[in-house]
Amino acid sequence: MARRKKIYEGKAKILYEGPEPGTFVQYFKDDATAYNAEKRDVIEGKGVLNNRLSEFFMTGLNHIGVPTHFLKRINMREQLIRSVEIIPLEVIVRNFAAGTISKRLGLEEGTALPRPIVEFCYKDDALGDPLVSEEHIIAFGWASQQDMDDMVALALRVNDYMSGLMYGVGIKLVDFKIEIGRVWEGDYQRLIIADEISPDSCRLWDIETGQKLDKDVFRRDLGNLTDAYTEVARRLGVMPANATHMPKPTLIN
């Protein structure tokens, strides 16, 4: 079967035209990047794990009434998604201090925040995805005030779901980032979760040991990234209990 037309290629995923209007096929690559792609590598099996984990999280969100672009998984590396108009913002929810907020505010990494904090970054790799305020977002027309209210509400619902899910398997959800897109149903606009939810986009720490089970393993050279992601998948029941890592699948012509 011939490969469909490529629509877009990012650092970790490729979008192809879908089988029906209004759909895309999202392919998960093994590429790992950090620090705005200043550090990069190819980690065998990473794309398979992120595909399966994102499917798991998106399906769970759909089941509790949080709308996402996910329709179904096609194979070990691809999933069928709805076409959405992506709002050019990363929505970040923080439960504990880590990463840039620790540096900006001088907080010790791991400090519990008084409440979940929602931040927005403008999606522009050349600018380093700068932090922006609601004033910037509304002034430059990236989103309306109603959009902003809906985005915060969506992000906090995702946080509630993900925090409880992870706590149940002994993992602390430190923070995560999501993307949100617009879909149109006639004249009615709706906001839905897009892109992916995976250890690439979350900080996940073992509750007991503090072991990092997310992309910080790659950023900070803390071990094998595939093993860390496999541990998350194993605890959630996405992977067999005896799995050690996810190898790259063998393609059969």
Rank of each mutant, 00 (worst) to 15 (best):
93 V>A: 00
100 T>Y: 01
188 Y>Q: 13
176 F>D: 08
184 W>D: 07
167 Y>D: 14
180 I>T: 15
177 K>F: 14
185 E>Y: 13
168 G>E: 15
167 Y>F: 12
181 G>Q: 10
121 C>Y: 08
141 G>F: 01
107 L>M: 13
137 I>M: 09
136 H>C: 05
93 V>K: 00
193 I>E: 01
167 Y>W: 10
165 L>I: 07
147 D>S: 02
128 G>A: 09
127 L>R: 13
168 G>Y: 04
145 Q>I: 05
154 L>S: 14
167 Y>A: 15
102 S>L: 00
122 Y>P: 08
159 N>W: 01
193 I>S: 01
163 S>D: 01
139 A>V: 13
166 M>C: 08
139 A>F: 14
191 L>D: 02
167 Y>N: 14
126 A>P: 03
172 K>W: 03
134 E>N: 05
167 Y>G: 04
184 W>F: 11
112 A>T: 11
138 I>S: 13
125 D>G: 09
154 L>F: 07
142 W>T: 03
114 P>H: 11
151 M>V: 11
132 V>E: 06
127 L>D: 03
175 D>N: 09
110 G>P: 09
193 I>H: 02
191 L>A: 00
117 I>P: 08
152 V>N: 00
107 L>H: 03
177 K>Y: 10
114 P>C: 15
114 P>F: 12
138 I>L: 06
190 R>G: 00
187 D>P: 11
189 Q>V: 14
192 I>W: 01
173 L>Y: 04
152 V>M: 10
164 G>S: 04
175 D>V: 06
193 I>G: 01
141 G>N: 11
149 D>I: 04
117 I>M: 14
132 V>S: 02
123 K>H: 07
98 A>T: 03
156 L>N: 11
171 I>C: 02
137 I>D: 12
130 P>L: 09
105 L>Q: 07
108 E>K: 14
159 N>K: 04
122 Y>N: 09
122 Y>F: 15
102 S>H: 10
123 K>I: 07
113 L>E: 10
112 A>D: 00
115 R>I: 13
132 V>G: 03
145 Q>W: 11
163 S>I: 00
122 Y>W: 13
185 E>P: 04
161 Y>I: 00
100 T>G: 03
184 W>T: 07
101 I>Y: 09
159 N>G: 03
134 E>M: 01
129 D>N: 01
153 A>F: 08
166 M>W: 08
141 G>W: 12
111 T>Q: 09
179 E>P: 03
146 Q>D: 15
190 R>D: 05
153 A>E: 14
176 F>W: 02
105 L>P: 13
114 P>W: 12
103 K>E: 12
